[in-house]
Write a protein that binds this DNA or RNA. Structure first.
Lengths: 138, 138
DNA sequence: TTGCGTGCAAAGGTTTTGCATGGCA
DNA sequence: TGCCATGCAAAACCTTTGCACGCAA
């Protein structure tokens, strides 16, 4: 594997911003705008390529909420293992919830045993409506 | 509400095909190709507009699996409760499995009761590796 | 020096929109 | 007849790709 072994200035800037955002999910547009506004403009294609590599390496998580707004990215903090976490994303306000719950392992076990499918929790996100956005609609 | 009250030939053809597809998920491209091949070509924008209205009315469900391949649509058959509907997408071969299982309602109940979050099953997809792609390797 | 990373531009694909025309009620 | 629906083309939008140059090791 020779991909993404170089420590370039751009990679560093991108990772810094991703870490700074913490659990917040950000779009490529936001990344580009931030870097430009901070005097470090980066080519869009470079951002996409770096993000792709980081996703592949497991450093960053990619979310797709709807086709219109594009994908969102989030830095994965190594200190918090997200394997036992639910990822709940509200389709209304866009908030991403991290919920630590042992019930997730039951889901994994069930789907593995009954449906022969190995869930990848780092890629799976539950979409729905959070409490504060109210359940009156739908 | 004055939207989509007209019973046009195009709307009828679209609904007929959606019903014919049953629980299968189809893309706009597939709809367009089918209608063209059956001697009833329909403008792409009309298909999008009709589908949007049908989704809004709750007649059709829209799935967004990943940004690349575009959205999928599925007719909602009132007779068959789609409450117990898993969506498993293999990250390796890309196959989308949709399996009926009552366990899904347990997941919904758990997350609603313990985490105050209303899961939208039509938007939630479990990512992972299917059996034929070998579940041990990531 | 070697080869990956970058950036620009162009291409690719999906979805939306403007506007004139056609069709339902 | 009054609108809404349609369809074509163009635009908008996100993302990828080709290619030459720059830079890390």
């Amino acid at each position: 594997m020779k991909k993404n072994n170089y420590n370039t200035k751009q990679k560093e800037l991108l990772l810094n911003y991703l870490r700074e955002c913490g659990e917040n999910h950000i779009t490529v547009q936001e990344i580009s705008a931030y870097l430009t506004n901070n005097g470090n403009p980066m080519g869009i294609s470079t951002i996409y390529r770096q993000l792709d590599r980081l996703v592949e390496q497991g450093t960053v998580r990619k979310y797709i909420l709807d086709g219109r707004s594009g994908a969102c990215y989030q830095y994965i903090n190594e200190e918090k293992t997200c394997n036992s976490h639910f990822h709940l994303k509200c389709v209304n306000c866009g908030t991403l919830f991290h919920v630590d719950c042992s019930f997730l392992s039951e889901i994994d076990s069930h789907i593995m045993e009954h449906h022969r499918f190995a869930i990848d929790n780092s890629k799976t996100v539950f979409y729905g409506v959070c409490e504060s956005c109210g359940g009156e609609c739908q």
